[in-house]
Simulated scan of single mutants.
Amino acid sequence: MRQKDRRSLAGDRHWRGSARLAASCALLFCAFSLLVDWDAGTLTLLRALLWLTLSVTAFAVLLPPRVTAGPGWLAVRTPWRSHLVRTDALVAVRQYGGVSAHLVLCDTHGRRLELDPRVLAANPLIWHELDIGVHRSVDRGTLLQGADVMEKLGHRIDDETVRAVLKASGLS
């Protein structure tokens, strides 16, 4: 990838901290498990491999998806797979609530991506790239379902941003 292409990417600015937290939790789990097993006098090579495997599994589960965006696209990478949609060719946008709210984006190429809306609120550059792509999809007439979802999400993100600015300036 060229240097200019790397600069035009918008990435989750909190991902590295979350990845470090996931690694720390997995390492602590491994260390404490091995220490307790060793102290009990039951540590064997097989049990050590079991604790290491469980620690790697805990890391994979705790590792958050990595979200990046660029002109006309949005990508989410997990330890298992990578999903990419064309934001300038979206067909549908749906938001599902509940305990773990998530946004589902579908493009004209049949690709589908799930995303936590909090990532968009925490990363204005990613939100900007997605918003531009959604407007292009609306202008082209491909976005058939979900323009209202994106409008509501945009208002919510703008409200949170205003509150954060007011709080940081001491006006609220």
Score class of each variant (00 low, 15 high):
residue 159 D to V: 05
residue 68 T to P: 03
residue 74 L to H: 02
residue 113 L to E: 02
residue 28 L to N: 05
residue 48 A to P: 09
residue 58 A to Y: 09
residue 87 T to L: 02
residue 72 G to K: 04
residue 16 R to Y: 07
residue 91 V to Q: 04
residue 70 G to L: 05
residue 3 Q to Y: 07
residue 109 H to Q: 15
residue 30 C to W: 12
residue 122 A to I: 06
residue 139 D to A: 13
residue 40 A to L: 06
residue 2 R to I: 03
residue 165 V to A: 15
residue 157 I to L: 07
residue 127 W to D: 09
residue 125 L to C: 08
residue 130 L to V: 02
residue 140 R to V: 11
residue 32 F to E: 07
residue 60 A to V: 06
residue 144 L to V: 08
residue 170 G to C: 04
residue 35 L to A: 11
residue 142 T to R: 00
residue 30 C to K: 12
residue 23 A to Q: 10
residue 13 R to G: 13
residue 8 S to V: 09
residue 25 C to A: 13
residue 5 D to E: 07
residue 8 S to N: 07
residue 141 G to E: 00
residue 28 L to W: 04
residue 36 V to G: 03
residue 12 D to N: 03
residue 17 G to K: 14
residue 46 L to T: 15
residue 105 L to A: 00
residue 113 L to P: 01
residue 22 A to M: 08
residue 67 V to K: 11
residue 131 D to N: 11
residue 30 C to F: 10
residue 133 G to K: 04
residue 157 I to V: 15
residue 80 W to A: 06
residue 122 A to D: 02
residue 69 A to S: 09
residue 22 A to E: 04
residue 69 A to N: 05
residue 109 H to Y: 13
residue 74 L to G: 02
residue 52 L to P: 09
residue 171 L to S: 12
residue 114 E to G: 13
residue 171 L to D: 13
residue 76 V to S: 06
residue 92 A to M: 03
residue 141 G to N: 00
residue 117 P to L: 05
residue 5 D to G: 03
residue 1 M to R: 06
residue 144 L to N: 04
residue 39 D to S: 09
residue 58 A to E: 10
residue 122 A to Y: 01
residue 106 C to M: 14
residue 91 V to C: 06
residue 62 L to N: 11
residue 34 L to N: 00
residue 78 T to R: 07
residue 137 S to E: 00
residue 21 L to I: 12
residue 105 L to S: 02
residue 117 P to M: 04
